[in-house]
């Protein structure tokens, strides 16, 4: 992917409280141009809050936030034109036609067109790209849930954004719609879009992300590529086999050696052999569980600090 050292998002010491409840307690993050970054975290960890602060829809309690070189809250319309937001639409513009809405919203970006980035994105081309070409003249209320979300993505892209935010873009997708959406996001890398999105789908995060951030306890507790996140947290491999009608399961740090032992051991033939590396999901769950086990509240701070120490180191070694 076309990564550069140009920071698109820079956040330092970000805090957010609602009344006396602290949701974000000092978030640090940086996203460079061209990256696809996924924000993971348990429910209520503040993912949506963080995204809304970056989008300029919400004021932070404290900390510094720079997105495309400006403070999102005060950045103005030219900045807004460079940012795409994929909203979870519900029933707005129900009676508008699909193409009509896209053309209408696209026109807002025309004054911000540049030779490098002609704006807006042509509506028909965009509809074809999200797979809605044959629905162009449908009323929006006639779309299925998945089609509607693809339209949401098209609306987020119509201004040819440099930075695209998506909050749980595939919630409620069926497997085919999810697959199509993944292809779409991967193809956007050529369009020089930096992407930050949240999801609960670990498999999705692994497929799409250059980098994964885990938000828990009000901090970023892990910041690494999917591979290194998996390696550093769950280095064990699970071996499952059957012999003489008995099923065995064993976890090991050295799967090759262990397998050799199993196969050389006396007895009947080995059947149903399965070797499974710890998945990203295992890694993620173990991270979050360890953090939660380290609480009660008083200890959260220490647990978070501990994690930041162990989990972020690998990001830089990845390069």
């Amino acid at each position: 992917m076309a990564m550069t050292d140009r920071p698109v998002i820079e956040v330092a010491g970000l805090q957010m409280s609602y009344g006396s409840t602290a949701v974000l307690r000092g978030v640090e993050l940086r996203v460079d141009a061209g990256e696809v970054v996924v924000l993971l975290g348990p429910n209520g960890a503040g993912k949506t809050t963080s995204i809304e602060i970056l989008e300029g829809f919400r004021a932070a309690s404290a900390g510094s936030v720079r997105v495309l070189g400006a403070d999102p809250l005060t950045a103005g319309e030219a900045w807004r034109a460079r940012v795409g937001v994929v909203l979870q639409s519900w029933r707005d513009h129900a009676r508008w036609r699909v193409r009509e809405l896209l053309v209408h919203l696209g026109e807002f970006y025309r004054p911000f067109s540049t030779p490098q980035r002609p704006r807006p994105w042509d509506a028909d081309e965009l509809l074809a790209r999200v797979g809605l070409a044959d629905k162009a003249s449908r009323q929006i209320m006639g779309l299925s849930g998945g089609e509607r979300r693809r339209l949401d993505v098209a609306v987020g892209l119509v201004g040819r954004p440099e930075l695209l935010f998506l909050d749980e873009p595939t919630a409620g997708f069926d497997p085919q719609a999810r697959r199509d959406f993944h292809d779409l996001i991967r193809s956007l890398a050529d369009a020089e879009v930096t992407i930050l999105f949240t999801t609960h789908d670990l498999d999705e995060a692994e497929r799409l992300a250059d980098r994964i951030l885990v938000l828990a306890g009000g901090r970023i507790i892990a910041d690494a590529s999917p591979d290194s996140l998996r390696r550093q947290v769950g280095s064990t491999t699970e071996v499952r086999w059957a012999r003489d009608g008995l099923t065995h399961v064993h976890s090991t740090e050295t799967p090759a050696d262990f397998l050799r032992e199993v196969l050389n051991a006396p007895g009947g033939p080995v059947t149903d052999l399965e070797v499974r590396r710890a998945s990203l999901e295992d890694a993620y769950l173990s991270l979050v569980h360890r953090l939660e086990a380290a609480s009660p509240e008083a200890d959260t701070e220490a647990a978070v600090r501990d994690f930041i120490g162990s989990a972020t180191a690998s990001r830089h070694e990845e390069g």
Partner: peptide, 12 residues
Amino acid sequence: DGTLLRAKAIPH
């Protein structure tokens, strides 16, 4: 229903 949010997400 999110109409205003959509309006807020685009320039002007």
